[in-house]
């Protein structure tokens, strides 16, 4: 009599997609303590959901003080780059099933930038480096009455680096940036690359000069951390090498 009931319960639990996952979040609140601490959260979640959904669940149901950035939640805005299981990823593009939910999932703010609260960092130094490379079209002469035309081959030249969403996953994975933070960082170089190799732009020389800085492209140690970290799959290190090559061929 009891056996079929038990079977049914077991079948139901097997059908349920939910599993228990531990989120180990690096918490920091300057209004409470100067120290950052790890805090564990247990939650029932479908492993096919994303880490961001888990963070939402914590914020909405367990602890409303958990602070993190997210805007579009679909991998386009670049707000929610964080260090998940020791690697920089976008929380909204990382599925829980892909990062071994049997073990606690560690979530930290990205490294090398000032932590303001929990997972929120001060992005200002990152954007400062971005602004320094003049990430806008610079031309001379009269403005054309139509769009500035470009051949598909010319467009293809810098196609890879147009994909950047400025999430800072690459820059904050770079060990040279961690050291003293003076290095421009991969993201700024990628965005300079996007205009240096654009046939319509006329300030490539100026941008190369900016990146010829003591803390410019020559501080790159080719560790490929940036290429590994990029959630958009940009070949960041390759772009940096192309800027180096452009600098050298321009001089010699």
């Amino acid at each position: 009599m009891a056996t079929p009931v038990l079977d049914k319960v077991e079948a139901e639990s097997a059908a349920s997609p939910y599993i228990t996952v531990t989120f180990r979040v690096r918490r920091f609140n300057p209004e409470v303590s100067a120290e950052a601490t790890w805090e564990d959260f247990q939650l029932e979640i479908d492993p096919k959901e994303r880490v961001l959904d888990g963070l939402h669940k914590i914020k909405w149901e367990l602890d409303g003080t958990l602070t993190f950035r997210r805007s579009c939640a679909h991998g386009i805005c670049g707000s929610d780059a964080m260090r998940i299981n020791g690697r920089n990823r976008l929380a909204c593009k990382t599925l829980i099933k892909d990062i071994n939910p049997e073990k606690p999932i560690t979530i930290e703010p990205i490294k090398g930038l000032t932590v303001l609260k929990d997972l929120v960092v001060d992005m200002e130094p990152f954007f400062q480096a971005y602004r320094d490379v003049m990430p806008f079209l610079v031309t001379t002469g009269n403005e054309p009455t139509r769009e500035r035309l470009q051949s598909p081959e010319d467009r293809e030249r810098f196609d890879d680096t147009t994909k950047c969403i400025l999430c800072a996953a690459c820059t904050s994975s770079c060990p040279v940036f961690w050291n003293d933070g003076q290095y421009f960082g991969p993201a700024a170089i990628v965005n300079a690359h996007r205009f240096i190799f654009d046939s319509r732009d006329e300030a490539g020389e100026q941008r190369l000069e900016i990146l010829n800085d003591k803390d410019g492209v020559w501080r790159c140690r080719t560790t490929f951390n940036c290429t590994d970290a990029c959630p958009r799959g940009i070949e960041v290190t390759k772009a940096i090498q192309e800027v180096k090559r452009a600098l050298i061929t321009r001089r010699f």
């Binding site: 300057p30 209004e31 409470v32 303590s33 100067a34 930038l113 000032t114 932590v115 303001l116 001060d122 200002e124 130094p125 400062q128 480096a129 003293d180 933070g181 003076q182």
Partner: peptide, 8 residues
């Protein structure tokens, strides 16, 4: 608490 200032 004071936050660690960003180097750049």
């Amino acid at each position: 608490a004071p936050v660690i200032e960003a180097p750049r």
